[in-house]
Design a protein around this nucleic acid. Structure first.
Length: 113
DNA sequence: CCAGTGACCAAGA
DNA sequence: CTCTTGGCCACTG
């Protein structure tokens, strides 16, 4: 499996993240069939060809943003806020609740309890 | 070819 | 919470 194919699959996974849920770079890589390649997932998010893709739904595994640019970082959290993503702090998503699990394939983060 | 850097990550101290 | 270690991979000079 070459790099291009992996990137394609990552792209597919990325576009499939539902509003209100998020993924870490590492999980994105895993779901694309490329475990351990979180850095490649990060590279993809940075060089996304299409700005209307849900780039804001990908975060660091600890729920913090890794985007250096403050402007973009704010927009990221703003969008997530609008999607009712659960937060732990003002700039930290609650990954335990917000992480997307494709196998669940349904409802809101809080509904599962 | 090699070294540094980066929107990474998990485990340990 | 912070910092370090070791592993991962692409790009740049």
């Amino acid at each position: 499996m070459d790099r291009l194919e992996i990137l394609e699959r990552m792209h597919v996974v990325l576009t499939g993240i539902p509003a209100g849920r998020v993924l870490s770079y590492g999980r994105l890589a895993e779901l694309a069939g490329a475990p351990g390649q979180a850095r490649l997932a990060a590279w993809l998010c940075r060089h996304l060809p299409d700005p209307h893709l849900p780039w804001h739904r990908v975060l660091s595994s600890d729920g913090h943003s890794r985007i250096p640019d403050e402007e973009a970082r704010r927009e990221q959290f703003h969008r997530l806020w609008l999607e009712d993503v659960p937060f732990r702090a003002r700039e930290q998503v609650d990954m335990a609740l917000a992480l997307w699990r494709p196998e669940d394939e349904d409802e809101a983060p809080s509904a599962g309890f």
